[in-house]
Amino acid sequence: MIHKNLILIIVLILNFSTLSAQNGVSVKLIPVEVELSNVIAPQFPGGEAELYKFLESNIRYPYLLVKIDMEGDLDIKFNIDKNGVVHDVEIMRGFDPVADDEVIRVVKAMPRWIPASVSGQPVKMEQKLTVSFKADEDLKKRAKEQRKKETNDNFYIGSLIINETGASEINTGEVAPDVISQSDTLLNRSPQFPGGKDALEAYLKSNLKYPKRAIQMGIEGRVIYNILISEQGEISRIGLFKGIFRDCNEEAFYLIKKMPKWIPGLKDGKPTPMEVMLPIPFVLPK
């Protein structure tokens, strides 16, 4: 009995262990409870340590969040199907839309797993992860050095590492600091601010008024609103997703209220009401 308990303790420690964060990112696999005794959980090629290595090497810290000392955790879930392919990637507890999208991007690029099995037969099974973003002094130093080489703030800290698991190539695109949206096609398109992302960024910079109390108290961060764009392009609903300070929240709200009509989203080629996650940054002047 003692030996069995010792083995159980070791297994639990392994399940909750993480490798040291390489890009300010650390990952923890959340154990999934299984009722049946003849179930074998899915396994990442090479085991749990290789899973952490892959994710922590490829998930990068958005510079925009390092700049405002924004740290936090997110929980993500996904299914491993009978063929070991990752499906149904979904954020359960978000941190910031930019960081959430970065994690989703890398999780979707994972190589095939060894699928779960019941009595020797492959089955679909859900997996869950906690991903932590923590900006230590080394990361902040690297961020400042990298910023000197960049034309704007829309980049990540950390470089992609060629992994040994044979995963598909990972997209190295920049952070989208304004609208976090779905992929666009000719017939399916997310709502767009008139003039695009550059126009939206210019609108926010020229119209945002930093609340005096927030400046005096040294408050900065990103207020995030979930807005609904109607089929006519009007902002028909504004819901606070994540706030930082009442005055900043209110300023962001009125900024959105004053926006011009958007270009509505398309579904199957027809204008359709769609939601957009809109972060509005408040960065203290240096």
Rank of each mutant, 00 (worst) to 15 (best):
E231D: 15
V98T: 15
Y225F: 15
Q121H: 09
Q216F: 01
T18E: 09
K28N: 13
S190W: 10
H3W: 08
Y52A: 05
I161T: 14
V118E: 14
K124W: 00
M70D: 13
V86R: 04
P279M: 01
G173Q: 11
N188F: 06
R142H: 01
K258T: 08
V32L: 08
S159L: 06
E150K: 14
V85R: 12
S236Q: 14
R147Q: 09
Q22H: 09
E169M: 04
D73E: 14
V131I: 15
D247I: 04
P191H: 08
I13Q: 09
F193Q: 03
K286F: 05
D69N: 15
Q43W: 01
A99T: 03
E35P: 00
R105E: 02
L65M: 07
L284G: 10
F78A: 02
A116H: 00
N207P: 10
E33F: 14
P271S: 06
L65A: 01
S236N: 12
V107K: 01
N207R: 15
G120Y: 10
K53N: 12
E174R: 13
E137L: 08
N226Y: 00
G47A: 06
G24E: 01
L12V: 12
A135S: 12
G269E: 08
G195N: 07
L266G: 13
K28I: 15
V89H: 07
L129R: 08
L255V: 10
P111D: 03
P177H: 04
A214L: 06
I10C: 03
I219H: 07
P177W: 03
D138V: 11
I161Q: 08
L208C: 07
K128G: 11
I238T: 14
I40L: 10
V11Y: 07
D96Y: 05
D69E: 11
I229F: 05
L14M: 11
I263W: 02
M110R: 02
F245V: 06
N249H: 07
S117C: 00
K205A: 10
I2M: 07
W113S: 01
L51I: 09
L8M: 06
P177K: 04
R112D: 06
L284R: 08
